[in-house]
């Protein structure tokens, strides 16, 4: 019944997935560490392609994939498996005592969760945004990654309390840098057991390729959009620097309304304003937003 509750994933690239030198290089490095037997951790700001890269690496590994998303509410039993219902046994004993005796015999039954399934069958685990879970919840991973033993919390109906981790088991982690809201400092012991690869924003070539692939715009147009986003990013004026997602959004939105990538076009300016000046502020500080608006207008005119 364990497995009936777990769905395994088969990651496959979409036609608009691009494999530039930058992506290839990262993938190969990660695959090297995995072959050496180490879990890999992609760390980087939002929109740097961590999740996508993890899926790509997982599909290269070629084993079935289970995915967990970090969550404040997670406890170890969420990761490992929880008690799932109980059996009710009624003993009706009228013959001897002439009293209706009802005995509730709670037999705790275990339902393994994704982590257990991955360890048991040697699947690839993607733990996305793992630092969003409370550190205690992740303690279970310490022995899994080091001793390759999974500690099953208290006896499952008298069964063994250890599970040997299958040799094919691989773990991929992603996280945002620690200054992000809602992120816990990852435990040092856990981070010490994995190889952390810090991801920066994509290089220009990759960003252009992604925008092209996702929107269908020709190279020249994609380059212009990416340019505006990158210049704004580097200006340092934004509370949150715009990511490749902003560039994708501009390109896709423009396609829908048949707009042109032209600084003089009202539609283009409007789309850039909507997407870039609100995406980059959290609460919308009025004075800063005005500044960003001016910059967006200027860059859109200058580069398009």
């Amino acid at each position: 019944m364990i497995e009936e509750l777990t769905t395994i994933l088969e990651p496959t690239p979409l036609p608009d997935f691009v494999e530039t030198r930058y992506v290839k290089d990262l993938t190969e490095r990660a695959m090297g560490y995995i072959k050496a037997g180490f879990p890999v951790h992609f760390r980087g700001a939002s929109g740097t392609g961590k999740t996508t890269l993890a899926l790509h690496v997982a599909s290269k590994i070629g084993r079935p994939v289970v995915m967990i998303h970090g969550d404040e509410e997670f406890t170890t039993s969420n990761l490992v498996g929880g008690e799932y219902g109980y059996r009710l046994r009624k003993v009706i004993d009228r013959f001897v005592s002439r009293v209706l005796k009802v005995e509730e015999d709670m037999v705790k039954r275990w339902v393994d969760n994704r982590l257990t399934v991955a360890c048991k069958y040697g699947f690839t685990l993607i733990y996305d945004e793992f630092t969003r879970s409370r550190p205690e919840a992740n303690n279970i991973l310490l022995s899994i990654l080091q001793e390759r033993i999974m500690d099953l919390p208290f006896g499952r109906g008298g069964e063994e309390t250890y599970l040997k981790v299958d040799p094919n088991f691989t773990a991929l982690f992603t996280s945002n840098p620690e200054e992000y809201a809602g992120v816990h400092r990852s435990q040092d012991a856990l981070r010490d057991r994995m190889i952390t690869m810090d991801l920066d924003d994509f290089d220009e070539e990759t960003e252009v390729a992604i925008v092209r692939a996702k929107s269908g715009f020709p190279l020249k147009e994609a380059e212009k959009i990416v340019k505006v986003v990158r210049v704004l990013r580097e200006s340092g004026a934004c509370e949150f620097a715009p990511t490749v997602r902003g560039a994708i959004m501009i390109a896709k939105s423009l396609r829908v309304v048949n707009g042109h990538v032209k600084g003089s076009s009202g539609i283009f300016q409007q789309v850039c304003q909507d997407i870039l000046s609100s995406e980059t502020s959290r609460i919308g500080s009025k004075s800063n937003q005005a500044k960003v608006r001016e910059l967006v207008k200027k860059f859109a005119k200058q580069y398009c």
Partner: peptide, 8 residues
Amino acid sequence: WKKFALKY
């Protein structure tokens, strides 16, 4: 296993 194709 119940399988689910995850496109990325």
